[in-house]
Amino acid sequence: MSSPTGRKRVVVLGAGVVGLTTAVKIQEKGEYNVTIIAETFPTDPKTIMYTSLWAGAHHVSHAANDAKQMAIDRETFNVMWKLSEPGGAAEHCFLRVAQTDYLLDGRDECLDWMPDFKTLPQDALVPGTSAGTSFTTVNIDTPVYLPYLLARFLSRGGSIVRGSVQHISQVIEGGPGLFRRGRADPELVHALVICPGLGARTLGGVEDKDVYPVRGQVVIIRAPWIRSGRTVSHLEQGLWTYIIPRRSGDVILGGTKQDNDWYPAARPETTTDILERCLALCPEIVPPAIRAERQGTIEDVRALIVEEGCGFRPQRKGGIRLDVDWVPGRAGQSSVPMVFNYGHGGGGYQSSWGSASIALALLEKALASPASKS
């Protein structure tokens, strides 16, 4: 049975930044009725099961010479730059900042397309680094931006259902109603869009063992005087120190990149290490009144802590999965396409809109194919 509106019914699994952005993109196309099914939504209390709220997050692409990934990241930046325009509906979600990146490995970040891009002279580098750049970017206030995406989705006619999906066959046979009312919907599900993040490891019908966690621990301090970002990185060795100010006045200090580390809470020794590295990189995080009298210490920064915690970045060997598979439909229905959009690792925000565009194109092509005709 088709939808009363004649629109195809699409179910998105996952409500992290990738799932929400993809759902918005599909719903705003105007040709689909989209429902998100997820265990956790951005308005829920923070949990280790929902990584997107723990992200920094700023738009600094790590695609480098990967042309496909760079195109995805550039599209996302362009959307976010537009959203962050002064007076815009989403300006409150972003902070446009001057960003300085210091590199320990001398690689080319390939970011000369960013606004106000400059290569730093040698005498402007911090000790131990071999190269550096500066540019303007956007920082995302994740506790504000994620509810914005959810509200935007709902305002365009999308719907949400809280549910724990063990296997994609549950959604094919029962639809969102199975999780909302405990019984199957009379209407068919025409397509699934799979955006479960780390859940892709265990979701029945997907079970992608190439997905693994990269633990990232952060410290959130209150320092509204900080209005520029700073990063030192050696990505090949997993070394990463960053200062990411938000519009709210909070500043995110990080970080760590720990493969297959499942520890779900902040480690005190890691918090101390992050504070030490960030203070060395940006002494200005100490309150100005203290710096006017003496050199700041780690305890001065510790006194500013609002929260500390960690998230599991959903990394995938081989990068983002953006493709289509087909599964048997409900009785009397032809095959149903599953569009995959997961495996973004630490780049979920940076690649969200670009990967959503590809997912939408894959969806439309699949639904137009003979295999999807009932």
Rank of each mutant, 00 (worst) to 15 (best):
G182I: 04
R294K: 10
E31C: 12
I72W: 12
A57C: 12
C310F: 06
L104K: 08
Y342A: 06
V11D: 02
I305M: 02
L360V: 07
T21G: 09
V144A: 09
F179M: 04
A359H: 09
S3T: 13
K209F: 01
R7F: 12
K118H: 14
L363D: 08
W225T: 08
I298G: 00
D123E: 14
E75N: 02
G88I: 10
A200C: 06
R277K: 15
G229V: 02
R313L: 04
V165N: 02
R291K: 02
P370K: 00
G88L: 13
S369P: 10
R156F: 15
L104F: 08
V219H: 00
S164E: 06
L95G: 03
K25T: 15
V165S: 05
A191L: 08
V301K: 01
L150G: 02
E39A: 13
T22G: 11
A292T: 08
D116V: 07
G128P: 01
P314F: 07
V171H: 03
P45N: 09
T297A: 08
T22D: 10
A266P: 00
G158R: 03
S169F: 04
R215K: 15
D116A: 15
F41Q: 05
L363Q: 03
R302M: 08
R162T: 05
G157Y: 05
V251D: 03
I290H: 03
P370E: 00
N139H: 14
V301E: 08
L125M: 08
A366E: 07
Q99D: 14
P127D: 09
P176K: 08
R316P: 10
G332D: 10
V10P: 01
V219T: 07
E293Q: 13
K365N: 14
H92G: 06
T119G: 06
